[in-house]
Amino acid sequence: MLKAQNIIKTYTRGIEAVNAVNDISVSIDQGEFVTFMGPSGSGKTTLINILGCLDNPTKGNLTIARQPVFSEAKPLSERRLTQIRREHFGYIFQRFYLIPTLNVEENIMLPLTFYRKSGAGDALTLMKQLGIENRAHHLPGQLSGGEMQRVAIARALINDPSILLADEPTGNLDSHRSNEIGEILLGLNKKGLTIIMVTHNHELAKVGGRTLHLRDGKLVSVG
């Protein structure tokens, strides 16, 4: 499904070059649930951004669905990255990023404004699946944190992605809501959705099938 080889991401701080991701190779199969863990600054968000085509690596190769995306030292344009993201990825973030002036249904359907992939879902089915159908006409400000993250998940799923990227999806939620989100992600994975998640939450990490630990930009262990 997704294969990254010798990914390096170097940032320059003044005259100092820092390898945020240092020669990481990882292969993720279709339907897998992979969790990246590690302390702050370990490079997990940088890695997930590269895997999710939000950023170019400095070096390395990335293949998605057997199609080469990045190859050695050939950065892709913002437009090309957007095209790849449209086809393959859905994203959820710690802060949800719902549009406050759009109601739940409109927020979920927002990605369809820009691109409608064949096989795109409908908002009502997703709302029912995530238990928020009675909130369809509520604004984000009227929802709890858990409900907002469910809306964000529905929004990520509306265009039928093959990979869901979740960056600290429970970072703003209490343990009860975190467990609920964990259950939802697990349910989606069981239906065949590939999930790549970054978290500090050990309980949530247990939900996933494979946990990869990072430190100083390198993979240090596989849980």
């Binding site: 939000l54 957007t82 859905g90 994203y91 549009i99 927002l110 820009f114 990520a156």
Partner: peptide, 16 residues
């Protein structure tokens, strides 16, 4: 700023 970035992450092109 962040919201516009997120719109782009969900498939909005610069022209959108």
């Amino acid at each position: 700023f962040q919201e516009i970035g997120i719109l782009k992450s969900m498939g909005a092109m610069p022209i959108d």
